[in-house]
Design a protein around this nucleic acid. Sequence first.
DNA 1: TTACGTTCTTGACATTTGTCAAGATTTGCC
DNA 2: GGCAAATCTTGACAAATGTCAAGAACGTAA
Lengths: 192, 192
Amino acid sequence: MIQKMLDYFNSVHPMSSELSDAVVGITEIKDYPKKTILLKEGQVANHACFVIKGLARGYYTAGEKEVTRLFMDEGFIITSWLSFYSRQPAHEAIELLEDCTLACMHHDDLQKIYAAFPEFNILGRKVTERFFYLSERRSLMLRRHTAEEKYQMFVEQYPTLFQRIAQKQIATYLGISEETLSRVRAKMLKKS
Amino acid sequence: MIQKMLDYFNSVHPMSSELSDAVVGITEIKDYPKKTILLKEGQVANHACFVIKGLARGYYTAGEKEVTRLFMDEGFIITSWLSFYSRQPAHEAIELLEDCTLACMHHDDLQKIYAAFPEFNILGRKVTERFFYLSERRSLMLRRHTAEEKYQMFVEQYPTLFQRIAQKQIATYLGISEETLSRVRAKMLKKS
DNA sequence: TTACGTTCTTGACATTTGTCAAGATTTGCC
DNA sequence: GGCAAATCTTGACAAATGTCAAGAACGTAA
């Protein structure tokens, strides 16, 4: 189980076996059922959880409505990075959309490893860069595009994911209304 | 001059005097005139430049139009992070909006410091985290808000900056047309 | 199976924003 | 100062998207 996470870390930056052991030492494998709220708005994100199996979403509430900011599936690390890094209350919540198996690390334990193994900071930096990259890519996708373009990009970028997610959540993710998404889909079906 | 950069680095993570000297050793202070293109789309970003004085913008071209992704002023580090770290061609260009004084470090020299001073990786990681944080915050601001809300947030968040930047660039940054921005401003003036 | 709640679709209409075009204002430069 | 270029403003209209409301389709549990 935990091997999936180690494989991922090693692919980012190879770890010595001592470092690897230390990482395993602070990692806890947990199963959570669908609909679990892993993090509430206003809480500090103390854990970073590698997704071994399952799917989650990060969202925030604006007025009455929930706006989905991102989806996190296998190979992703679940946390509110803003909160996890800054130690400030999160502005977003995290909800599991499917039953999940997660490999969780506590912030403080992670800091100890950063201190004990300076080279782990290279890995930390690269993981951060990777999520930075994904975040920027999402942000770019949402900028200056029509509803139709955004949905097409979403389907192309996440060909398996979009079938696992309710449309109203895809809609808030894309920043369009549920109805508009429905119409876009109808229009695309006609064409093909 | 270079002290401003050292102060910033030390505030992120304290540096030993040896490390500090090594950083100074690879840093070059340069003056560039307004309108200089520091990085073109398709080039690899070889430098990371701390802004001592001045202002720049990162943008990409979508079809005919330029879309401004971010502004970088004093205390910011100018580069395309994605390109700088991945050594891949950048998807964005960087243009100076004012005459600038920059403290520039070359990617390869920086790598040597990472190797010689493992603890510098801590600083590198934290700087990356900080820019990730700023990126996410920008991304949030642009989501699900009206033109008026976005402009108000921009003014509040960058009270000094918005007076230094042409409106059409603020408009592309906010993802709205120049005309809409102009109307929003007119409307806000009336109210106050 | 039925009954219920949720999700998805569709129509009518309102609102926001974009586009095009013209004119006003500001800026840079000789 | 005065001209040219760039920037900003304003109006009229078009396009995209949102909102409200109703009904269809789907999944789930008794």
